[in-house]
Design a protein around this nucleic acid. Structure first.
Lengths: 152, 152
DNA sequence: GTCAAAATGTAGCTATAGCTACATTTTACA
DNA sequence: TGTAAAATGTAGCTATAGCTACATTTTGAC
């Protein structure tokens, strides 16, 4: 990692209250556990739309993991009630899975649009959004939407 | 593994090229592995500044994890060459650790400042930044700084 | 229809990150 | 100074996420 270009003026060096900080980190950790589910559900939805089916091998290739890893993750997605799959048949989303995919897609687009509005090149915006999107709260999403609306 | 005949990725244009998408996800995954190191290093630096020492119990309490979990993580931080610690003595940062802490702090402040500039309430900005900051590329950071500078 | 290749599934390994329970060392104070 | 409490460290459990290697099922070419 390299040096960020600027330091801001709002540095106080003060730690937040213990409980507050612990709550924040805890939230961040639980967000990590849902990030994978969200990535899989979004990709399954995309594949269903564009290919008509979502196969483990395609999912694995898209995510850059082995098919064994993908199959295990798909099992988790199924356990979470987001998808269904029968052996040697494709993966399908449940109602709940479709709903999540819809939310995740909208959020992804909003994050990408915001980054681009701030002058981030499309490639970087898409790449960074992949990580960022899982950690953006509803409150922050609303602020993003407001900002984009305000500036046309 | 060959491409199935129907799996042309230009079908809808919704999905990025396979390799591109796999690279993005891979990057996101490796960012996750460094996120924990960054969190610990930043907190150790903060504690060293404000308390004069960084003790495992304090670190654990701040992060909202058990002290055993913190000690294991500290071992990882040491293995990464970012900190030193002798049994029953506090944790200290190496040169490398200090440098990382500095970069991580600057990045954190920049992300918080940007969110606030976009109208996100301070509480949400601080909380979301905790997750977001680990996934913001240098390119995006530069865009953030530029945007903040432009609007004074 | 057979049979090999591709896809899918399973087993078992590593490493991380969390936990509780227990052991050890320091520290504080009566 | 002794001893109990606090802090620290260790052991061992769960679960996730990755991998390779191998087994099974489906598919497709002939």
């Amino acid at each position: 990692m390299t040096q960020p270009p600027f330091a801001s003026q709002s540095a106080t060096g003060k730690l937040p209250a213990e409980g507050t900080q612990a709550r924040r980190f805890g939230k961040t950790r639980s967000a990590q556990s849902t990030a994978l589910l969200e990535d899989y559900v979004e990709l399954i939805a995309d594949l269903l739309d564009s290919e008509g089916e979502a196969r483990p091998t395609d999912i694995a290739r898209r995510l850059g993991v082995s098919h064994a890893t993908a199959i295990k993750a798909i099992a988790r997605v199924k356990r979470a009630g987001l998808a269904t799959a029968r052996p040697y048949r494709g993966v399908f989303l449940t109602e709940k899975g479709h709903a999540l995919a819809h939310r995740v897609r909208a959020r992804h687009r909003l994050v990408v649009d915001l980054l681009r509005a701030l002058g981030v090149p499309t490639e970087s915006a898409e790449a960074d959004a992949e990580g960022i999107e899982h950690y953006v709260s509803e409150t922050t999403l609303k602020a993003f939407a407001q900002f984009l609306k305000a500036r046309g």
